[in-house]
Design a protein around this nucleic acid. Structure first.
Lengths: 193, 193
DNA sequence: GTCTATAGTGAGATAGAC
DNA sequence: GTCTATCTCACTATAGAC
C-alpha cells in the first residue's frame, strides 16, 4: 500500500537520523549525511519530513511520551514502592537497550529543539521527574527506603541508567536481564560491604 | 602557578565559550555569539585563539588532565580502597561545582573534537576509567566492597556525579559537602532499607 | 517521489586599515 | 589588538523537470 510505504520511508529516515545524531550529534549531522545513509538525495527527504528540526522533535517527543506512559502504568499497579522503583529502573534500561539511539538523542540533543518544542520537552521531563520523585518519597514514608535526599536518589538513578547505552553491546558478557539485576543491586544495596 | 588559570583575554574567551557551549551546545554556538559575550568582534578573537575547534580542545584537554592528575594523586595515598573511591567521588563533585561549564563541555561536546584530538581525548578517558575500575576491583578483592560487577559499579558512580552540574545551584538547600555526603551514602549503602 | 540545480543563509576564518 | 569588510564554504530548504 502506498500509505504504508510512505510511513516506512519516513520511519527509516527517523531511525537513521537517531543513529547519526547519536554518533555525531545533531549539529554534526548534515541532511546530506542522513540522505546518504537513507539511500536518497537530501532534497527527496523533504517529501517525508518537513525539516531537520522536525526530525529531532519527532524523536524527542516519542521518547518523552514513552517514559511518561510507562510511569503512568506503573503508578496504577498496587506493587510496593520498592517494586515500582525497580520496575521503572528496568524499563529505563530496557528502553535504552531496545531504542538506544533515540533515547540518546532525547538525552543529549534536546537542547537544539526550537521553541515551543523545547519548552514542551522540558516540561514533560520535569513532570516525569516529579512523578518518579513522588514514588521515592512515598517509599521513604512507607519505611521501604532509607531517608535519603529524594533529589539525590532520583538523579542518581536516572543518570545511572544513562551509561547503559554507551556501554551495552548485545552479546556482551551480560544479558539485558543480568545487567538490570546488577544495576538494581548497586542502586538499592550499594557498593560497600 | 600551575593550578591558577590566568585571567587574561584568552582565558576570558575560553570561560565564556564553556558557558555558551554548555548552554547551547558546541554546534549551537557561533563565534559571533561568543564574541558578543566576550565584548569584542568575532574577528578580534582570532588574535587570542586559533580556531573554534581549538577552544573546544583546550577546554576538553584541561578537564581530562585534571581528572587524570587527581586520580594519580589519590592512587599514591595509602588510604583504604573505600576511602580512595570516596575521595574520587568527592573530587568529581567538587570539580563539577567549581568548574561546571567546562566539565559539562568535556562530557557532552567532546564528540565534536577533530582528529587527532578526538582520539587523544577518548584514550585519556579510557585510561582514567581503567584506573578507577582498578580501585574498585582491588577494593572487592580486599573485601571492602561487595562483589559487584566492576563496570556496572564504575559507570554508576561516574554517571551519578554528572547530574550534579545540572541540578546544583550555589545557595541551594544543600551545601557542596552535604551533597557529597548524600551521594556517597546513596552509592555506598544504597537506597533500600 | 525522486532527481538536479540552486536559492538563501549563516558559519568560520582572513585581510588590511588604524 | 581591534576593527570593518569580505572571502569561502557548507548547510537547510525550495523550485521545477521528469
Amino acid at each position: 500500500m502506498l500509505t504504508t510505504r510512505k510511513t516506512n520511508r519516513r520511519q527509516l529516515i527517523l531511525d537513521e537520523a537517531a543513529k547519526l545524531f547519536k554518533q555525531k550529534g545533531f549539529g554534526g549531522t548534515s541532511m546530506r549525511d542522513l540522505a546518504r545513509e537513507v539511500g536518497m538525495e537530501a532534497a527527496s527527504m523533504y517529501n517525508h519530513i518537513k525539516s531537520k528540526d522536525e526530525i529531532l522533535d519527532l524523536i524527542c517527543t516519542r521518547i518523552a511520551h514513552t517514559y511518561i506512559s510507562q510511569l503512568a502504568e506503573i503508578e496504577l499497579t498496587d506493587a510496593s514502592y520498592a517494586e515500582k522503583v525497580k520496575a521503572l529502573i528496568r524499563l529505563h534500561i530496557r528502553l535504552m537497550i531496545e531504542d538506544g539511539a533515540a533515547v540518546s538523542v532525547a538525552n543529549h540533543d534536546w537542547k537544539y529543539l526550537p521553541e515551543p518544542q523545547l519548552t514542551a520537552f522540558k516540561d514533560a521531563r520535569k513532570n516525569y521527574e516529579k512523578g518518579f520523585a513522588a514514588l521515592i518519597e512515598q517509599g521513604i514514608a512507607a519505611g521501604e527506603f532509607q531517608p535519603v535526599n529524594v533529589s539525590v536518589a532520583l538523579f542518581t538513578i536516572l543518570s545511572a541508567v544513562r551509561w547503559v547505552e554507551l556501554w551495552y553491546r548485545p552479546g556482551r558478557e551480560l544479558s539485558a536481564e543480568e545487567l538490570e539485576d546488577h544495576i538494581i543491586t548497586m542502586l538499592l544495596t550499594g557498593l560497600a560491604k
